[in-house]
Amino acid sequence: MTELVRLLADGCQSELEIWGCLQVLRGPGMPAFVQQRPITVAGERFLLDAACEDVLLAVEMDGAAWHGSREQRERDIRRDALVATVGWQTLRFSYRRLTVEAAACRTEILTVHTARRCLFGLDVVR
């Protein structure tokens, strides 16, 4: 129960976000993420589900209730394009991928995180 309260206090707003935090974002070797990170772009305010601020990497956990319709998907595409204009890269994971392929999601996040660390000059490429 204590862990659930901590996850809610950290900003998890759905069962999928709780699952994503426990099984993906907080897995072994994962970078630190901030939950529900606010960002304003072109006068519009958004909340990123999870953000790795040092490399401007956002992870969105898309449940069908909020991201299932065509209009919602188009809104997500527009939002991702807007946040990209200020340097953020967004990775989106569906309910199925997060719950069935958690290890593959972690690998994808780590791969992109590593590449962005190099891009930002935080790691030396050898």
Rank of each mutant, 00 (worst) to 15 (best):
T40P: 01
F120W: 13
L98A: 12
A58L: 04
G87L: 08
L82M: 15
I77C: 09
S14R: 08
D123L: 15
G11E: 01
C105I: 05
L82C: 02
L98T: 09
C12E: 01
M61C: 11
Y95V: 02
V24E: 00
V5Y: 10
Q72H: 03
A115S: 12
R78T: 13
M30N: 01
Q89C: 09
S69L: 05
C52R: 05
G20E: 01
G121Y: 06
G43K: 04
Q13L: 06
F33N: 07
E53I: 12
T99Q: 10
D80K: 03
R116T: 06
A51K: 09
D49G: 09
D62C: 08
L22E: 12
R75S: 11
L56K: 15
F120R: 15
S94Y: 05
L48N: 05
R126V: 12
C118G: 13
E74R: 13
T114S: 11
L98H: 03
G68A: 07
G27I: 02
Q35G: 02
L119N: 02
P28S: 13
R79W: 06
G29V: 07
V41Q: 06
G87I: 11
R97Q: 15
D123A: 12
L7Y: 10
T40H: 04
Q13M: 13
G68K: 09
T90M: 08
A84V: 00
Q23K: 15
V86W: 03
R117D: 00
G121F: 05
E74P: 00
D80I: 07
L7C: 15
G43D: 02
A81H: 09
A64P: 15
V55A: 04
G87H: 08
R45Y: 02
R26G: 14
R96N: 06
A65R: 14
W88C: 07
T99M: 13
Q72Y: 03
L47R: 14
V5T: 12
A115M: 10
L98D: 01
L110S: 12
T40Q: 11
